[in-house]
Nucleic acid binder design. Structure first.
Length: 490
RNA sequence: GGCUCCGUCGCCAAGUGGUAAGGCAGAGGUCUGCAAAACCUCCAUCAUCAGUUCGAAUCUGAUCGGAGCCUCCA
């Protein structure tokens, strides 16, 4: 079984064959740093984070490049609004981006290049495009001549006639064709500028990705990713720039993640219906957000809502509870004896043994994380079946199966960035996280629990149930067990 | 208008030709003083219609509904 992935270029799933056996070059468009990141960015970065992790898990040596676009019209405009230097603004949001990605538990890419540190490479690339007739200088600008690149629009599968209707030439632009796009822009007063053969100016959007991917991954590389909205114009233009200059295929596999919707509508800055990552993380655990995103296939749209996030929280808790249950079970392990194997144990052993092959099969099919999570849920049920029976704590086969199941779940879950915390710690954190809204402190709850315990000891069940109901009304559930009473929030 | 994509149980969501995973919610049961948690059992023929096929949620056509791109956007 080998990895198959959906390639936007071909419009279908293809077997993944890297250019160099054992190695993968992957470039993912990062952000233009002029504002805080929203959940859409979170999704894109989490999706490619798990692709990065899975490729490594599958044994590839992966070079993952994710850029910062730190020079751009939007940055300049925002900096002007705030009356600060555009470079300072970019640095501020690069820091914010790093903090957010870190909070989301993302692995660091191999290389995180900044556009402004690659101006020389950009200028060289633009010169190369002019030299081979693909671009032209006009005033202090340089434009890409799309009509000279026959493959233009092969990624987004459109044709020039359709596109022409919507294309406009903005005032001041000196294009030959409405679809031509800027490779280099002449600098106006007060704008960041670098010396170039065409005078002081700055790179257009798109060219930085061609230049930086070429620098770190070569003229042809394996995987290029980003959100669906980058297919046109950004990635289309990257192809034009890179292939126009080198005459070689730019990228073998194009991967695009679906949008995050709010109320079934695309979340976007222009609609104003977006949530920033840092706002979301005030309410929801980062791993809950990741779990939520991974419950849907990466190419499908996903609807962001409190209900869906709460469901994700519930789902993830189920895993951590099962893991905590397994830990408690293993701690009680006594002298191991081998008896006739029971059905529950046989099922768990079977599930634990086949987990990795199921995991791989699902992930190899275009990163089907939703199916993987389904497999994990199956394992949890089998695991709970065993750990719910105390006698099994002295059964050698049960202990082996529980140990294997727990280890497998954590090991494979970690490939998706899931189950990375200590179960008890995570559950404790979740317990306390929502207490603010209830108006209760952990101490107050503990006091009520002991009051209820004395009532129960006196068989005063009316009083005992009253306490439980009051807590339940505030979202606190009590869990009685042989070891005493604990609580969690609903 | 052009080009894409989508429509699977109350909700979320896999499945893209071989007879519908999983989670949440719900019903019944075991456990419990009663509950909760956990476990057991139950719970869909896949928007509609017409085709292709031995066989379709999966392919084709039409219809209805939703979304995206064509302008900055993950």
């Amino acid at each position: 079984m080998s990895l198959r992935l959906y390639n936007t270029l071909s419009g279908g799933k293809e077997e993944f064959v890297p250019l160099r056996p054992g190695h993968v070059g992957m470039y993912v468009c990062g952000v233009t740093v002029y504002d805080y990141c929203h959940i859409g960015h979170a999704r894109a970065n989490i999706v490619f984070d798990i692709i990065y992790r899975y490729l490594q898990f599958a044994g590839y040596d992966v070079t993952y490049v994710r850029n910062y676009t730190d020079v751009d019209d939007k940055i300049i405009n925002r900096a002007n609004e705030r009356g600060i230097d555009s470079n300072a603004l970019a640095e501020e949001f690069i820091r914010a981006f790093d903090e957010d990605m870190d909070a989301l538990g993302l692995k660091k890419p191999t290389i995180e290049p900044k556009a402004t540190l690659h101006i020389k490479q950009i200028i060289t690339l633009v010169q190369r495009l002019i030299a081979c007739g693909r671009a032209y200088a006009s005033g202090g600008d340089v434009y890409y001549a799309v009509e000279n690149f026959p493959d233009y629009l092969k990624l987004s599968k459109r044709n020039m006639d359709e596109m022409r209707a919507g294309a406009r030439i903005a005032p001041g632009e000196l294009k030959r064709h409405p679809m031509d796009f800027a490779l280099w822009k002449t600098a106006k007063a007060g704008e960041p500028a670098w010396e170039s053969p065409w005078g002081a100016g700055r790179p257009g959007w798109h060219i930085e990705c061609s230049a930086m991917s070429m620098q770190y991954l070569g003229e042809t590389f394996d995987i290029h990713g980003g959100g669906k909205d980058l297919v046109f114009p950004h990635h289309e233009n990257e192809i034009a720039q890179s292939e126009g200059a080198t005459g070689k295929p730019f990228v073998k596999y194009w991967l695009h993640n679906g949008f995050v919707n709010v109320n079934h509508e695309k979340m976007s800055k222009s609609l104003g219906n977006f949530f920033t990552i840092r706002d979301i993380l005030k309410t929801y655990d980062a791993e809950v957000l990741r779990f939520f995103i991974l419950t849907a296939h990466y190419r499908s749209p996903i609807d962001f809502s409190d209900q869906n996030l709460d469901e994700a929280r519930l789902g993830l808790s189920r895993f951590y509870q099962a893991l905590a249950g397994a830990d408690a079970f293993l701690q009680q392990a006594q002298d191991k004896s081998a008896g006739p194997e029971r059905e529950e144990i046989a099922e768990l052993r079977e599930r634990a043994c086949t987990l990795e092959s199921r995991f791989k099969e699902a992930m190899d099919d275009d990163f089907n994380t939703a199916l993987v999570i389904g497999h994990f849920f199956d394992l949890v049920r089998a695991l709970n079946r065993v750990t719910a029976i105390p006698e099994f704590a002295s059964d050698r086969a049960a202990l082996a199966a529980v140990t294997a199941a727990r280890a497998g779940m954590v090991q494979l879950g970690n490939v998706l960035g899931l189950f990375v915390s200590d179960p008890q710690t995570w559950l404790e954190k979740q317990k306390h996280a929502g207490l603010g809204e209830t108006g209760l402190s952990a101490e107050a709850i503990e006091e009520l629990i002991s009051a209820r315990q004395s009532a129960r000891a006196n068989r005063d069940f009316a009083r005992s149930d009253q306490i439980r109901d009051e807590l339940a009304a505030k979202g606190i559930l009590l869990l009685d067990s042989a070891q005493g009473t604990t609580w969690k929030r609903k």
